[in-house]
Design a protein around this nucleic acid. Structure first.
Length: 841
DNA sequence: GCTGTGCATGGTT
DNA sequence: GAACCATGCACAG
């Protein structure tokens, strides 16, 4: 076997991709892994188009070659191929008699056992939905215009009868290389296959318990097509377009046949039957993960975004009909079959694959998936992928969290980034919940953009198609709330890159030639020396650190990353910024709180305390008379919870009349509430004391002449605008260290009353038992919402400064942010905050 | 009353 | 308008 490797980079050369060729390139060949096309000379291009090259991709030796393993006898100097446009006749010439004998003896083969496009290196955008059957029906001349046949749907699914011998035969075929057929030689393959409607229930159809193996084997080796002897006579031109990718899946069992982990790859046959949203969009990493270190070939079958029903507790995963019929064993009885599925970790699950009669059709479901879904920590909006390992034939169920799910709409390389949102840690910008993730996949962006400008038209997406059900409900749209300005702050140009600024609807937008970087939100300022700096908050200790203004930070930043100030590279180091300074900085940067809140939303659901606080706050906000979603719904929809979560949040009944917490309760939730409340109160006190001090000072200045006459040193006559109790607070002085424990003169005297209402100092008493924690939170929120901006900011800033802003309940924090955003940025992204909205619930 | 099952309904493509 | 499919809902255990 010779190799004439040439890489995609050859595009810079004028030489043909085939290094053995001295001609100059002039035509495009197959798609390279790089996404470019191999550029070929006429001669090589013709050879390529005629299929005179190895159809097995050899990972270890890129480029063209002749391959003994797959039986190609083409000019050794000419390249292997992805079998793109390979005439069937060429392929079938390579079939060994042995293979066909075996095939003949294997009986009818489901159409789905036909060749597959697995491991195609052709991006989805290059793959036209086309199933084998369709392809099979094409004659060579038609193949050249295959795309025009896109709509040539196959009305009748091929029979999926399978018998036990088929598997062996199939495998044999696979192991013996190409088992393709040509229209000339095996004209009956497709016809025979297709003559049986898929829904035809043939009682004689063998019911294979773990039939995946056979199906997979067959399917993974497209060449097999309908292999029954009678079908051979009618085999249509096979395996043309579907082999955008190499056919090596199982075709070539030679040692050098290797999995090519490439993205995306799929079975064109299957895909042609499937809606695009079910097309498998595996990344290399995913495939690699599935395959592990084995030499198994992965056959991506399909994927599906989990609906609420799928991810719910019912444990029924509705399978796309065509996927089920294409890739799963045929079932003729509603009871279905048990199906072994291996997850990406190698754990094996057994689901019941069955169907329900439905409108003269069927609904296919996998039952019993709840444990698996929970094990994978999947939620509605996440994507489950089904693939098959060859030659084992194992069905593998993978998953892709919505946060990293490639856009099901984008068939381009951007899909890897997924959802149009960078996955490089920036997902924290949005809520990690499935719904928010759904959001991320385009909906929020769409809505935001629509709301803010007409920059981009709404993109219909798979998600959009499911919009009614998957669309974020108002009450779920709680996390992302950024103004353009804020969003701009998050965008950083790549280092040493100066963005150009464009004006859109009165807003300045920085345009980056290269993709901007979503960095950690920081506060830019100028230090005493007049130097531009930025303040960044440590993810761990929440202390603010001063960094050079040009420091480009990752979305997650901790003190340990502080290479600019080694003395403060530890969380234990004191914060340079005083509370006052921080306070001065923060009002203009609620972005910080917002971003942190979003970041918190991304945090794993393990932080029960914080979650509990959120929900408790929500409960308080909504009021006990306002219904929350049922516990199950909450579990499903709560941004930070997963189905089955039994934390205090998720177990809250719809009425909110969940478990009450006593003052002595020391659960995480209560402790967190206490801690936050304490901090909040400290901040308030401080604020008030400052106000009072300021007022007093002014008053004193105003009354100074009088004071000269009046020896009364008491400031008791001051202010009037402040609470009568403030004098006492003033006397206590402010506390620059928000972490410092409250002074003994606090109304709480070291004891936090979970039932108090923070803003009503007259009600602040240790013994107060006037309300529940929920009521407290509710009042707190109401106060914050009804307070002036300063108070709002104070509360928000305090919490943000303590790294809690992000953990405030949605209602509180969002309400706050919303208000400020509306105030400061009339065109702020107005992500609904119905969770905290009075209209909600 | 809860849960699971099977089917029906209705939105979406 | 048909097919698909997410979800609702009645019913049984």
């Amino acid at each position: 076997m010779s190799a004439a490797p040439s890489t995609s980079s050859s595009s810079t050369s004028k030489k043909c991709f085939n290094s053995d060729c001295v001609d100059f390139k002039s035509r495009k060949g197959w798609r390279l892994r790089s996404g470019e096309f191999a550029e070929l000379c006429d001669r090589c291009a013709s050879a390529y188009e005629e299929g005179r090259f190895c159809e097995t991709f050899h990972l270890s030796a890129t480029g063209w070659r002749c391959c003994d393993s797959c039986g190609k006898t083409s000019n050794s100097a000419w390249p292997p191929s992805f079998f793109y446009n390979t005439p069937l006749s060429e392929r079938f010439k390579d079939l060994s008699v042995k293979s066909w004998s075996q095939l003949a003896g294997s009986g009818p083969v489901p159409w789905r056992q036909a060749p597959s496009l697995f491991n195609s290196s052709i991006p989805h955008s290059e793959l036209h939905p086309r199933n084998l059957y369709e392809i099979d029906r094409l004659n060579p001349s038609e193949r050249s215009s295959a795309p025009s046949l896109e709509k040539g749907r196959v009305e009748d699914f091929p029979d999926r009868l399978v018998n036990g011998s088929l598997k062996l035969g199939t495998r044999d075929i696979l192991e013996n290389g190409n088992a393709g057929t040509s229209s000339e030689e095996k004209p009956g393959v497709c016809l025979g296959i297709s003559q049986h409607p898929v829904l035809k229930e043939d009682p004689s159809t063998p019911q294979l318990g773990m039939a995946i193996s056979f199906a997979s084997l067959n399917e993974s080796n497209g060449q097999i097509g309908g292999l029954g002897t009678p079908l051979r006579q009618t085999a249509p031109p096979l395996l043309a377009k579907q082999f955008h990718g190499n056919l090596h899946n199982g075709v070539d069992s030679s040692p050098d046949t290797q999995i090519r982990i490439g993205r995306p790859r799929a079975d064109a046959r299957g895909r042609s039957q499937l809606l695009p949203r079910y097309w498998p969009r595996f990344t290399d990493e995913e495939l690699q993960q599935i395959s592990g270190n084995s030499n198994s070939v992965i056959t991506p079958l399909f994927e599906k975004m989990l609906s609420a029903s799928d991810a719910g507790r019912i444990g029924r995963l509705v399978l796309p009909k065509k996927c089920a019929e294409a890739y799963f064993p045929p079932i003729s009885h509603p009871e279905g079959l048990p199906l072994k599925v291996q997850d990406s970790k190698g754990k094996e699950w057994v689901f019941q694959f069955r169907f329900w009669p439905n409108n003269n059709s069927r609904m296919y479901v996998l039952e019993g998936v709840t444990p698996c879904i929970q094990n994978m920590r999947l939620q509605a909006g996440d994507i489950v992928t089904f693939s098959r390992l060859e030659p084992e034939g194992k069905l593998v169920m993978g998953f892709r969290k919505a946060s990293t799910a490639p856009s099901s709409d984008l068939d381009n390389d951007t899909s890897k980034a997924g959802n149009g949102v960078s996955t490089n840690g920036d997902v924290e910008l949005v809520d990690p919940s499935p719904w928010s993730k759904v959001d991320k996949s385009g909906y929020i962006a769409k809505e935001v953009l629509e709301a803010k400008s007409s920059i981009k038209k709404r993109k219909s997406s798979t998600l959009g198609s499911k919009s009614k059900r998957l669309r974020i409900e108002n009450e779920d749209m709680i996390e992302l709330k950024l103004t353009w300005e804020e969003a701009q702050r998050l965008l950083r140009p790549p280092p040493d890159h100066v963005p150009s600024v464009v004006m859109i609807e009165g807003f300045e937008f920085e345009e980056y030639e290269d993709a901007p970087i979503l960095g950690k939100a920081t506060i830019f300022a100028t230090d005493n020396l007049g130097q531009k700096i930025q303040w960044v908050q440590c993810e761990d200790c929440f202390k603010w650190r001063k960094l050079p203004a040009n420091a480009l930070l990752p979305s997650k930043w901790t003190c340990s990353s502080n290479s600019w100030d080694l003395e403060r590279s530890l969380c234990s180091a004191a914060q340079e910024l005083t509370a006052e300074q921080l306070e001065d900085l923060l009002p203009s940067c609620n972005l910080v709180a917002a971003s942190k809140k979003m970041k918190a939303a991304k945090q794993d659901a393990e932080n029960e305390a914080l979650e509990g606080l959120d929900t408790l706050a929500n409960l308080a906000i909504l009021g006990e008379n306002e219904a929350l979603p049922t516990s199950s719904q909450a579990t499903t929809k709560h941004p930070r919870h997963r189905p089955g979560c039994s934390c205090i949040v998720c177990i809250q009944p719809p009425s909110g009349k969940g478990p009450k917490h006593k003052q002595t309760c020391t659960c995480n939730v209560c402790q967190t509430v206490k801690r936050r409340f304490k901090t909040l109160m400290m901040k308030r006190e401080k604020k008030q004391s400052e106000k009072e001090a300021e007022t007093t000072r002014k008053k004193q200045q105003e009354t100074l002449p009088e004071k000269l006459l009046d020896d009364d040193p008491s400031p008791s006559t001051n202010t009037g605008s402040s609470s009568p109790n403030k004098k006492k607070v003033v006397s206590e002085g402010s506390d620059d260290d928000p972490n410092r424990s409250k002074s003994s003169t606090s109304p709480f005297k070291g004891q936090i009353d979970l039932n108090i209402q923070p803003e009503r100092e007259e009600e602040l008493s240790p013994g107060s038992d006037c309300g529940s924690m929920m009521k407290m939170l509710q009042d707190a929120r109401q106060q914050m919402l009804s307070s002036d901006g300063d108070n709002i900011s104070a509360g928000n800033q305090l919490l943000a400064g303590h790294g809690m802003g992000e953990n405030i309940s949605n209602g509180i924090s969002l309400g706050t942010i919303h208000q400020e955003s509306q105030k400061d940025h009339p065109s702020a992204f107005s992500m609904k905050v119905s969770a905290s909205s009075p209209a909600a619930g």
